[in-house]
Simulated scan of single mutants.
Amino acid sequence: MKILVTGHLGYIGSVLTPMLLERGHAVTGLDSDIFRACTFVGALAYTPTIEKDIRDIEPGDIAGFDAIIHLAGLSNDPLGDYRPHLTEEINCNASVRLAQIAKAAGVKRFLYASSCSNYGAAGDSFLAEDASFNPVTPYGVSKANVERAVSPMADETFSPTFLRASTAYGLSPRIRFDLVVNNLTAWAYTTGLVYLKSDGSPWRPIVHVEDIALAYIAVLEADRDLVHNQAFNVGLTTENYQIREIAALVQAIVPGSRVEFALDAGPDKRCYRVDCSYIGRRLHGFKPQWTARRGIEQLYDTFQAASLTLEDFEGERFKRIAHVQKLIRDGELDGDLRRRPLLAMAV
């Protein structure tokens, strides 16, 4: 298939793109690449790239594609909270506009990177795909609103699918250290402390980034009637943990580490458990490969090999919000997170 992957240079995209290429798909990427200085380990797969902000997509950019995998957006809560109007503009308005342009251009399939954060403050019950949305952050609100807007566009010519990923973790060339498993493992390796900024009580489903990529491939290659206008919780039902359980796993794997709570640690409003059985019943090609223990071991081994330091993952290079703020201070991005034209031409 001829596929456009937006955000192909991000945390998930840099894992998914080479997997698509290995399966023989023709992939074009679209990414403003504001995190180009943030590659951690490994190399990015080469693919034709449209370097453009998702807000600036034109019909000519997407004509001729069989499918769009839409990953691009502001991808964590601190970045989403930074300027909430930009989260709405980039994550919601630009995504809905992209779907509208794709439908008009004859793109048959539209795979959207939604999130289990749609469920937000939901308590201890297991949630299937028909559960109510209750997002508590601008990021979660944006994801829920895109689903509400794009789903009614579905018809015989345009087939959207919504992949509600559990909280991601695991190794990627463009790793995110703000994600709970990655973050706790990095703290443990660099300081000896499994450092919890909440009281550890909230529930959270987790899924390895490679398994998220496998879910996109399974949806992309499935018969249309299996995925048409469907939403899928992505992960394994057995991989729901309280944050303190993840911390205990990290402590058991990283030698000499111990759990410590921040002085202001309190409950986190984001608390949800998800039932991921539907995707497995519907798509027999989706077979998750990772567990939290294996993922933490992978991260620990990589952090050792890379000699990761606290400054690396808490500093301006790899911390998303800090990196964006640095680019603004340095004049490489404007206040709307657009790359300044003269500098964009110079790099």
Rank of each mutant, 00 (worst) to 15 (best):
E239M: 06
E239D: 09
E239P: 05
Y241N: 08
Y241Q: 06
Y241W: 10
Y241V: 07
Q242Y: 02
I243G: 02
E245N: 09
E245I: 05
E245D: 11
I246L: 13
I246T: 04
A247D: 01
A248C: 05
Q251T: 09
Q251H: 02
A252N: 13
A252L: 05
A252C: 09
I253S: 00
P255V: 08
P255H: 06
P255N: 06
P255L: 05
G256S: 07
G256Y: 01
G256E: 04
S257C: 02
R258K: 14
V259C: 02
V259H: 01
E260N: 07
E260D: 08
E260P: 01
F261H: 11
F261N: 04
F261Y: 15
A262K: 08
A262F: 02
D264V: 12
D264C: 09
D264A: 13
A265K: 07
G266T: 15
P267T: 15
P267S: 15
P267N: 13
D268Q: 12
D268G: 10
D268A: 12
D268N: 15
K269P: 14
K269G: 12
R270V: 10
R270H: 11
Y272A: 13
R273Y: 03
R273D: 03
R273A: 14
R273M: 10
V274R: 02
V274S: 05
D275P: 10
D275H: 05
D275W: 03
C276P: 05
S277G: 11
Y278K: 15
Y278V: 14
Y278R: 15
I279Y: 01
I279H: 02
G280L: 15
R281Y: 10
R281V: 10
